[in-house]
Amino acid sequence: MHKIQAWGASAAGKPLAPMSIERREPGPRDVVIEILFCGVCHSDIHQARDEWSGAMFPMIPGHEIVGRVTRVGGEAKKFAVGELAGVGCMVDSCRACGPCTEGLEQFCEKGNAPTYNGTEMDRKTPTYGGYSTEIVVDEGYALRVPTGLDPAGVAPLLCAGITTYSPLRQQGCKPGDRVGVVGLGGLGHMAVKLAASMGAKVTVLSTSAAKEADARRLGAADFVVTKGGNAFERLAGKFDIIVDTVSAPHDYNAYLGLLRPRRAMVLVGAPPAAVPVQPFSLIMGGKQLAGSLIGGIAETQEMLDHCEKHGIVSDIEIIPIQKINEAYERVLASDVRYRFVIDMASLRGPSA
Rank of each mutant, 00 (worst) to 15 (best):
E83F: 07
E75L: 14
D343Y: 07
A220S: 12
G228M: 09
P175M: 06
V87M: 04
G67M: 12
T164S: 08
V137N: 04
G161Y: 02
P175W: 06
E75T: 10
A113M: 02
I4N: 08
I65L: 08
Q278T: 02
P18Y: 14
L256K: 00
S43L: 11
I242D: 09
S208G: 07
M303D: 04
G73K: 13
N112E: 02
L347H: 15
V181W: 08
I297N: 05
A12R: 06
D44S: 13
G228W: 06
Y338T: 14
I316F: 06
A17G: 10
K287C: 02
L332S: 10
V275D: 05
G153Q: 05
A9N: 03
A160N: 11
K323D: 15
R216K: 13
R216Q: 09
V91G: 02
W7N: 15
A6L: 10
E22R: 11
W52H: 12
H189E: 09
T119M: 01
K3T: 15
P276R: 05
G140E: 14
L184E: 09
G148D: 11
G228F: 09
V154R: 10
H2E: 14
Y128M: 15
P151T: 06
Y328V: 14
I294C: 03
T115F: 02
G237Q: 13
A200E: 08
D92W: 01
H250S: 03
I21P: 13
A196Q: 13
D177L: 04
V154E: 11
A11Q: 12
A352W: 14
C173N: 11
D177R: 06
V179D: 05
K323S: 15
H189D: 07
